[in-house]
Amino acid sequence: MDRILLKKAALANRRKIFFTLCFTLCLTFIGTFGYMAIEGWNLVESFYMTVITLTTVGFGEVRPLSMEGRIFTSMLLIVGLGSFAYGLSTMATFVIDGEFKMFLEDRKLEKEISRLNDHYIICGFGRNGVQVCHELKKSNSPFLIIEIDDEKYNKAVHEGYTVIHGSAIEDEVLQLAGIERAKGLVAALASDADNVFVTLTAREMSKKLHIVTRASYSSTEKKLFRAGANVVVAPNVIGGKRMALTLLRPHVADFLDSMVFGEDDIFLTIEEVELNKKSPVIGKMIKESNIRQESGAMIIGIKNHLTQLIKFNPNPDIQLDISDVLILLGSYVQVEQARKFLLNED
C-alpha cells in the first residue's frame, strides 16, 4: 500500500476511533441516567454500575436489580461489548498496519514545520528540485520539500530533508508547509500546467512570497508570469546556452562553474546583501565603505533601491543608501564577513 492510500486509511481509522470513544461516552451517560430513572439510585451508584457493566469486570451489583433494571443491564452489556469489540479491532488495525507510526511521524513533521520561518518551499524533488535542495543545503538556508511520488519522497527522506508527502497543487498541503511564513517557493514539477496551478495558488495565499518556477516550453513563460511568478527559469534554454559556452569558451565556462558552484580549487561565491538602517556604510561612497578591507569581498554590482537598476562594476563614488542591494564576490568566508559587517551583526 503506498503512502497516500495509507494516509487515507489512517484518517478513516482515526475517525472510527473517535466515533467509538464518543459512542462509549454516550453509553455511559445513558447507563448512568437510566439506572437513576429505573432503580432510583444516586449519581455515584448509577455511574459505578454503568462502568462495571460496560467494562465487564465482573463485580457484583450495587443493589439488587428489578426486572426492568435487569433488562436494561442486559441491553447495555450487549451494546457495550459490541462497541468494545469494534474499538479494539480498529485500534489493532491502526497499530498493526503501521498507521500509528505514521501518525507519530506526521506529528513530528508538523512540529518541525512549525519551527520554520522565512524558509523556502520546494515543490517537486525531480532533477531540478534535487539541485535546488543541494544548493540551499550548502548555504544553510531553511527549506522543506513537497513531493507526491513515493520513490522521490523516500529518496528525499533518505537524504535527511524535511518532506511533506502530498500534492503541491492542494491548498491544505501548502498551508501545512507554512506558506504564510515562507520567504520563497520553487515550482519544479514535471508538468508546466501543474507549475502554473501551484504558482497561481501560492500567489493567492501569500502576496509577499518570492516565486521561482520552472518552464519546459517558452509558450508557458507568459502564463507563469501572469499567474504570479517573480522569476521563470527554462532549464532547456539555460542548458543550451551552457553547452554553447563550453564549446566556444571552455575555460570561461570552467571558471564560472567553479565560482558559482564551489567546485575545483576556486571556492568563490556570489551573494547579495540588502542594506538596512543599522549598516555602517549608509551615506558613504563605495570607496569610503572599507568593505574590501574589512572582509576581502569585492562589490561587483549594486541595485539602486529607487531605480531598481543594477549597475555592474559600479563607480566607487556612488553613495550607498538604505535598501540598496550590493552584489558581492568572494570566498564563503569573505562573503559572510562582508554580510555581517554590512548588516552590523556581531
Score class of each variant (00 low, 15 high):
residue 119 H to R: 01
residue 130 V to N: 09
residue 153 Y to R: 07
residue 100 F to Y: 15
residue 120 Y to E: 07
residue 132 V to W: 00
residue 144 L to E: 07
residue 131 Q to A: 15
residue 190 A to P: 10
residue 170 E to W: 07
residue 207 K to G: 06
residue 174 L to H: 04
residue 175 Q to K: 15
residue 130 V to K: 15
residue 165 H to S: 08
residue 203 R to V: 00
residue 111 K to C: 08
residue 117 N to H: 13
residue 101 K to M: 11
residue 158 H to L: 12
residue 162 T to K: 14
residue 171 D to G: 07
residue 148 I to G: 14
residue 105 E to P: 05
residue 171 D to A: 11
residue 160 G to N: 09
residue 200 L to A: 14
residue 152 K to G: 00
residue 170 E to H: 15
residue 102 M to G: 09
residue 104 L to F: 09
residue 114 S to I: 11
residue 107 R to P: 00
residue 132 V to K: 04
residue 138 K to M: 12
residue 198 V to K: 01
residue 201 T to I: 06
residue 121 I to H: 00
residue 108 K to L: 12
residue 110 E to Q: 14
residue 173 V to D: 01
residue 165 H to F: 15
residue 106 D to L: 13
residue 124 G to R: 05
residue 151 E to K: 14
residue 146 I to H: 00
residue 135 E to W: 05
residue 206 S to L: 04
residue 183 K to V: 02
residue 118 D to T: 09
residue 164 I to G: 02
residue 144 L to R: 08
residue 178 G to V: 02
residue 142 P to D: 12
residue 137 K to A: 13
residue 114 S to D: 13
residue 110 E to G: 09
residue 168 A to K: 03
residue 145 I to D: 01
residue 180 E to K: 14
residue 187 A to D: 00
residue 151 E to H: 10
residue 110 E to W: 05
residue 179 I to P: 00
residue 155 K to T: 10
residue 123 C to F: 02
residue 202 A to D: 10
residue 120 Y to A: 12
residue 184 G to K: 03
residue 207 K to Q: 14
residue 141 S to E: 15
residue 163 V to M: 01
residue 104 L to H: 05
residue 101 K to R: 15
residue 165 H to D: 01
residue 143 F to N: 08
residue 136 L to A: 08
residue 140 N to W: 07
residue 116 L to V: 11
residue 115 R to N: 11
residue 188 A to Q: 02
residue 103 F to H: 12
residue 205 M to R: 09
residue 153 Y to I: 03
